[in-house]
């Protein structure tokens, strides 16, 4: 993402913090697709993902003034809100570890060819590059990263699901992030 876009998003959040409904509407149009996709990816239920998105945008409306660029991009901030809310939902409503394990077992590496259209990724080609980069990660690294981000499991729970020591899981997440960072330089 280029810098001017980031500043625009920051400005949007600032205006939302001041109670600007138009800015909120624009922020929604820009990120609802991405945030909903992530919520749906985590929960896998349309209706519940809608509830999560509704609550997340409620949080954005109320907490926009607490956002500071030091905490990362606005999209990242909103993503974190969504991820946390969705994983909270998973914990609360999907009866804990059993369903989470089931969800993790259903983790499927999405096709690199699957197109995405969201505000975070500005062009189709970059989306495909990112998807391809994720798909090209070694399976153990990818799975550890996906379990960490999309299921809300703790490190120890991931370790139990993968039947791997905690240290190995940490190393895989680190390895995956470093590899992706190298591959995505100049893309994301």
């Amino acid at each position: 993402m280029n810098q001017p876009a980031m500043y625009n998003d920051v400005d949007l959040l600032r205006r939302i913090g001041e109670g600007d409904r138009q800015a909120f509407s624009r922020f929604y149009d820009q990120y609802a697709g991405l945030l909903f996709s992530v919520a749906f990816r985590i929960i896998n239920e349309q209706q519940e993902a809608e509830d999560v998105l509704q609550e997340v945008f409620g949080q954005i409306w109320h907490q926009a003034r607490t956002y500071h660029p030091r905490r990362g991009r606005p999209s990242g901030w909103a993503l974190t809100l969504t991820r946390n809310k969705a994983t909270d939902y998973l914990r609360a409503y999907q009866q804990g570890a059993k369903l989470q394990e089931q969800a993790s077992a259903e983790m499927v590496v999405r096709s690199a060819a699957a197109p995405t259209a969201n505000a975070l990724v500005r062009s189709r080609s970059s989306t495909e590059l990112i998807a391809a980069a994720v798909a090209e990660l070694p399976q153990d690294q990818r799975k550890a990263m996906e379990l960490a981000f999309f299921t809300g499991l703790t490190l120890h729970e991931i370790s139990a699901v993968l039947h791997e020591p905690v240290g190995a899981v940490s190393a895989r997440i680190r390895g995956g992030l470093l590899k992706l960072r190298t591959r995505l330089e100049g893309v994301a």
Partner: peptide
């Protein structure tokens, strides 16, 4: 840097479009 990578990874999930009525619901909630 890691945050950027994480966000990119999240951005590569298969897209699911929220129903248009959801925006109306959220705006109405405001």
């Amino acid at each position: 840097g890691f945050r950027t990578v994480r966000d990119a990874m999240a951005g590569a999930v298969p897209p699911v479009t929220p129903p248009p009525v959801l925006k109306q619901r959220i705006m109405a909630q405001l």
